[in-house]
Design a protein around this nucleic acid. Sequence first.
DNA 1: TGCCCCTATGTTGATTTTTACATATAATTT
DNA 2: AAATTATATGTAAAAATCAACATAGGGGCA
Lengths: 181, 181
Amino acid sequence: MNTLSYGLLSLLSNSADSGYDLMRKIQPFWPAKHSQIYPLLAQLESGGYVQHTLVVQSDKPDKKVYSITPIGKEALRSWLTEPACEPNTRDELVLKLYCMEQGELADIRRLLETRVAYSQDKLAWLQAKLEVYSLQQPPPPLGTLLLMKKAEYHFESDLSWSEWALRQLVERQNQEEPNPR
Amino acid sequence: MNTLSYGLLSLLSNSADSGYDLMRKIQPFWPAKHSQIYPLLAQLESGGYVQHTLVVQSDKPDKKVYSITPIGKEALRSWLTEPACEPNTRDELVLKLYCMEQGELADIRRLLETRVAYSQDKLAWLQAKLEVYSLQQPPPPLGTLLLMKKAEYHFESDLSWSEWALRQLVERQNQEEPNPR
DNA sequence: TGCCCCTATGTTGATTTTTACATATAATTT
DNA sequence: AAATTATATGTAAAAATCAACATAGGGGCA
């Protein structure tokens, strides 16, 4: 039972779901490909933590909908009593920024502009989703709200930073070629 | 040449360093253990991207100080022209929060309190470091500042979120046992 | 003196993760 | 009509990452 397994159980503790949907939902918090999810679900099922029923669909391919079992819930319960390991982030952009002196300012600028756009997109998407959730009756579980809010805080901060960094870069660019006439 | 390799080259493009120090410096941006760093450095050296000299120390064990070569710098240059892959975060805490209904509120509260303390520590450490850097003459490269500022933005946001989340949790706790007399 | 911690480098084996291969249905686009 | 995209599930092999083992000098502590 690794962290990803618990993550899948965690998602399933709120609602039954297919492997395909679990794969998409877990991305923001623990990135994983379907090739990792499907075998893990089978493993969880053979351990009795989850079970599935086949759902026939007419407009899309059939799917397996997994739900958590009492054994799975018990596993989550004991997992929750243990401390969480430290979060970690892998961000290629910062590695590139660190050696920016080696390349062209225009390239670095493009990298930062891409990040600004990325953060804006994510933030807009999240805020639309938060809007929907705030109107839901009955209100969604607290855990869901905490997660969405964390993502919102994160992308707001990332957007602020990347915009600030871009301004720093443009200042630097202006210093290098002042008043081109 | 994977991202970690470029990350090591990136660090070395600013200053020569030992594998041990590279290992510690790259943690915030691309976590890696020494067992991954040392073989990679040897590989980079055999490819001509870096070279090392043995530095004898009297108070500590001797070390290999690596520096980047022209080939290494050229590799960085072409890497900088390519777009950066999307950042990703793995955070066990949010997976636990999502299934908080399965456990005790006191346990969840402890998890969040730990995160608050963690963010405070990181932030204080960073701000002390930023203070030192702001006084440096000559001023450090822009890349260094961008990185430290990103980390500052991040931990400020993480602290704000975790404090907010803790308040939400306490509210929930008070609702469950109102006016205990 | 013995034990642990920090520095410093390395290897081995297990686990995790990614990439690529593989198949299939339905809707949309060209 | 053909190609592409989204849904849906799976496997195999490669690559990346981590945990553990291994060695070694110096300092601090009990």
